[in-house]
Design a protein around this nucleic acid. Sequence first.
DNA 1: CATGAATGAGAATTCATTCAT
DNA 2: TATGAATGAATTCTCATTCAT
Lengths: 192, 192, 192, 192
Amino acid sequence: MKEDTRDKILISALNVFSRNNYHAASMTMIAEEAGVSKGTLYWHFESKEELFRELVINGLDYFSQRFKEIASEDISAQEKIYEVISFGVKILVENSRMANILRNNVQLISEDFKKRVEAKHEENVEIFTEIVEQGMNEELIEKNNARRTAVMMMVVLFTSNANWLLDEISDTEEQVEYIYNFLMNGICRKEN
Amino acid sequence: MKEDTRDKILISALNVFSRNNYHAASMTMIAEEAGVSKGTLYWHFESKEELFRELVINGLDYFSQRFKEIASEDISAQEKIYEVISFGVKILVENSRMANILRNNVQLISEDFKKRVEAKHEENVEIFTEIVEQGMNEELIEKNNARRTAVMMMVVLFTSNANWLLDEISDTEEQVEYIYNFLMNGICRKEN
Amino acid sequence: MKEDTRDKILISALNVFSRNNYHAASMTMIAEEAGVSKGTLYWHFESKEELFRELVINGLDYFSQRFKEIASEDISAQEKIYEVISFGVKILVENSRMANILRNNVQLISEDFKKRVEAKHEENVEIFTEIVEQGMNEELIEKNNARRTAVMMMVVLFTSNANWLLDEISDTEEQVEYIYNFLMNGICRKEN
Amino acid sequence: MKEDTRDKILISALNVFSRNNYHAASMTMIAEEAGVSKGTLYWHFESKEELFRELVINGLDYFSQRFKEIASEDISAQEKIYEVISFGVKILVENSRMANILRNNVQLISEDFKKRVEAKHEENVEIFTEIVEQGMNEELIEKNNARRTAVMMMVVLFTSNANWLLDEISDTEEQVEYIYNFLMNGICRKEN
DNA sequence: CATGAATGAGAATTCATTCAT
DNA sequence: TATGAATGAATTCTCATTCAT
């Protein structure tokens, strides 16, 4: 109840930042979209940067929490990878706004902020690395630098909702399938 | 000789835009970095947007020209893909500034500009599609939607210099190898 | 009370625009004269043009309102003309600033604005035409194109505070008398 | 022959200043319209103001010269007035560009310049005063302050090509007639 | 908690003017 | 004579931020 206004602000910030990128978005736009005054923005958030930070860190936390859960389930690496991709693709396609924000703005703010975001990314890379190592042990994944493979997984996942791809594949389920297959097998003809 | 100043401006614009993104970069910064006055900027370029456009379109042209050349060579699809990746990765790593610009700014400017950039992207997708189709005929690539595969190639190529990856792989040659293998075979254990 | 600042701005705008003409006047000058910051100007008015528009339209409205009142009074055309001139000359002499603005700037702004001003002028011409027609019926005014005569009335009235004339006649009452006589009888020797 | 370029510049300056008013007109516009470079402008004229001054002073000289001629002819005051008006109206209607410049810009430039223009005006007022005095002696014009009457003549003459009037009267000859009659007799019904 | 008026630093852009060639 | 590249001060306007109410 109490957090009513704060949440309204966060939602409009999400909308505005996803449409406009950090520097093009203005506090006026956010205030208007939230239906509050600019003064209210500053009562709830110290600055534009803090508001943005809140949004991004929350967004990233959402991912790492679920990733952590998946990683700790008692299933095969293959299943974990599928679940990670399924979760990631669905969330990113549904919340394409947040996805846009994550893809386009992160490096644009202060050094301090960049570091916090990179720490979050690092968290995710570590979770993925764990999964990859499990996969190597299960003879699913080629034995190679596990961390590097984890990074590649993240790159593919987080670009999976790039405009180019979205135009090609309309059904989310199909997109999960496609991304999963691509990640696992690449583009080569599979002999069988 | 004559184009001295214009080139100086383009170079500092490249630097400034790659560090700062379109809206955070200011004409003052570009002028200072080029060692000319703001008036001079406007003598050579009609507006901030035109200066940016020049930079981006030039950059994209550079890629499509070489891609076209590679596509029309008389070699196997496999060799073409390797060459495309080799060229792309090297250029993007060397000119990481331009890469940053392409990744982070394109959607931020006017609709008109967006369309021009998308047209350039489409050009590249078409070249890649051609190569992929050749690869399918040569039984190299899984027979599937060729265009979609081409899009995936581009996504992987253009994110191949993402900070995360660069931190993992320092040697460019090795990075080419890695990206190529990832694209062709994914992360699975190759049985042989 | 609330409109304090807005009014302060309008007053300094009046001063600055009357001294400097639209293009030579700067928002900085207006802000300084009003003792507020430039930002405040833009809080109260959307743009320089809007601020100017407000001033001019207000000014013109002031005239047409009184002209309308006079036109609808139950008096002879002769009395109406005298009242119109009396009102016009007094206001224009007292507010020579506004008069300067009206005389010198109107055609300098956007087409859209020009049309709005011309519409206001047309309103006045119509009121004057009505009076002139009454005068013709009362055998006061030569039967001729009434509208043209109305236009001539306006020309004389709105140039009645031209610098040249003001230098010649210092007393306003005398100036009203003079303009009225000139308008009615021209410069010829009146035989009687 | 030598003055070719200089004249070209003066002509485009006339066009540009009449369309745009002093501050809205730019040296770039004048240079482009003349088909020369901005550098050339500054070779022929010291500054924008000097170029404008040249134009205006020339224009005013043109009037005073002819007015002087008319004043010194051996004809009645009535004929002189008619000739003055005929000449003035025709020139102002034909050269409405110059007329616009004279009406709209004069007070906008430096004090020094203003004084020079006022001196020219004063010259004209004196010539007119002479004519008016002759008219008083010939019992044509009401015996009154001659100078003031001369000023009124000038006001009527120089506003005779105001847009409002031009819209009403299309034929120049008719306009001369109308202005002359208005000046001599005002708007009252003439009994005889 | 919330508002809206106010601020001022900084943004893009224009333009009269200069000057080497 | 003529050019065009260069300058820098001035201009309009934006926007994150503050604060009295």
